Structure formats: C-alpha cells, structure tokens
Computed example of a mutant assay.
Amino acid sequence: MFDKNGDEIITVHDLSQALTLLGLDADFSELESTIQAHIKSGNDGLEFEDFVSLHHGGQQLQQQDHDQSAHEISQEESDLSEAFKVFDEDGDGYISAHELQVVLRKLGLPEATEIDRVEQMIFSVDRNQDGQVDFFEFKDMMRSVLISTS
C-alpha cells in the first residue's frame, strides 16, 4: 500500500503520503529523521525488511527477558489498537466492509471500487462469520501477515 510505484522501496514521501491519506498527519522532518536510521546505506528509502524493523522500533523479536517481552507485547498491542482505530471509523469495535472500503479508497487502491472484493477481504479474516472484523480477528490477521512476510 505504501509503495505506490512498485519499486519495492518506501520513501519518506511515500510514507508521509499514505499516513496523510489515512488522516494520520505526521511532521515530514520528524518522519524523515525517524526512518533515516532504518534505511540501508545506498538506498533512497525503506526496503520491506527495513519497514518491518521500523514498525518494531528496530528491536529484534527475540525474548531477551520477561520484562522486555512483556513491554514488546504491550507496545505491539497498542500499535495494533491504533491501526484498528484507523479502520473502525465509527468506533463501534468492528470493521465493516464499508469501513474497509473507505480506507482502501483513501489509499487509492483499486479494490475499493468493488464491494464484492471488499466483502471477500472481510470474509477471509472473519472467524466467527458475523460479517465484520473485531479487534481479535484483526490482531490475528496482522500477526499472520507479519509472520508470513518476515
């Protein structure tokens, strides 16, 4: 979603634009200084692994000790909760097909034009088959995406 031109690099501009589309305004210079530490030497932006590293605050996903592990889990939970709120526009605790469609439209993704595809996306992660994605289903989906791509 962030790599609009498909070059497998996410620039500061790409990231800033995506965050703005989602209504999450970020100061460009602060964003730039934050991600510079995660860009490999010689690159103009983040590769996928760099983006994952940025998401995890540059920390490895290894359990160093119980306190650190508990902190990472609570930070991950907080991050996922914030991401969920972006999709759950009405704040009812569920992501409907319409809400997902709105976010996809904001991101300029072609899937947003076809409600059948959006409903299929919901169905694919909707474990209790209520036609909506709750926070636990969202969390499971996000964790499986991060695990399968790392």
Rank of each mutant, 00 (worst) to 15 (best):
A26L: 12
S124W: 01
K40F: 03
L46A: 03
A112D: 02
L80E: 01
A18P: 01
Q101S: 09
E47G: 11
D50H: 07
D92V: 08
T113K: 14
D3E: 07
E72H: 12
L46P: 00
V52H: 02
L80S: 01
R117S: 12
T20G: 12
G45V: 02
D65I: 04
D67M: 09
P110D: 11
P110K: 15
G57N: 06
D65P: 00
E89F: 02
G23H: 06
K106D: 11
F135T: 06
E32R: 06
Q68C: 00
E89T: 11
Q68R: 08
A70K: 10
H55G: 13
I39G: 04
P110Q: 14
G58H: 04
T113W: 06
G91I: 03
I10L: 04
D90N: 15
V118H: 00
L31E: 01
L146V: 10
R117T: 09
E32G: 04
A97E: 00
M141G: 03
L24D: 08
A97T: 01
L24Q: 13
E8D: 13
K106H: 11
L19T: 08
M121Q: 09
K40C: 03
L104S: 06
S78K: 03
S33L: 11
Q36C: 09
S96F: 05
A18V: 14
A97N: 02
I115N: 01
G23I: 08
F136R: 14
F87L: 08
D27E: 15
M121R: 07
L54G: 05
I39V: 15
K106Y: 08
G93T: 07
S74C: 07
A112L: 03
L19M: 15
T11F: 03
D88W: 06
H13F: 10
D25C: 08
D7Y: 05
A26N: 09
D25N: 12
N5G: 08
T149V: 13
Q64E: 15
Q62H: 10
D25A: 11
I95E: 01
D134N: 15
T113G: 15
T11R: 00
F2S: 12
M1N: 10
I35W: 05
G58C: 03
R105G: 09
E82M: 10
H66A: 12
D65L: 06
R105A: 13
N5H: 07
Y94D: 01
E72Q: 14
Q62G: 12
Q64P: 07
E47V: 13
D126M: 02
K85N: 08
E76Y: 11
S81M: 13
S96N: 06
S41D: 13
E137I: 02
D44H: 09
M121D: 07
D67W: 09
Q59G: 07
G58A: 03
L31H: 04
Q75E: 13
D67C: 10
D92W: 05
M142N: 06
S144H: 08
K4S: 14
Q36I: 09
S33G: 01
K40Q: 15
T34A: 13
D14V: 08
F87P: 05
V145K: 14
P110R: 11
Q62I: 14
L46R: 05
D126C: 08
F51D: 02
G6R: 11
G131L: 05
Q132H: 15
R117Y: 05
G93R: 04
K139P: 05
R143I: 15
N128P: 04
Q68F: 07
A18C: 13
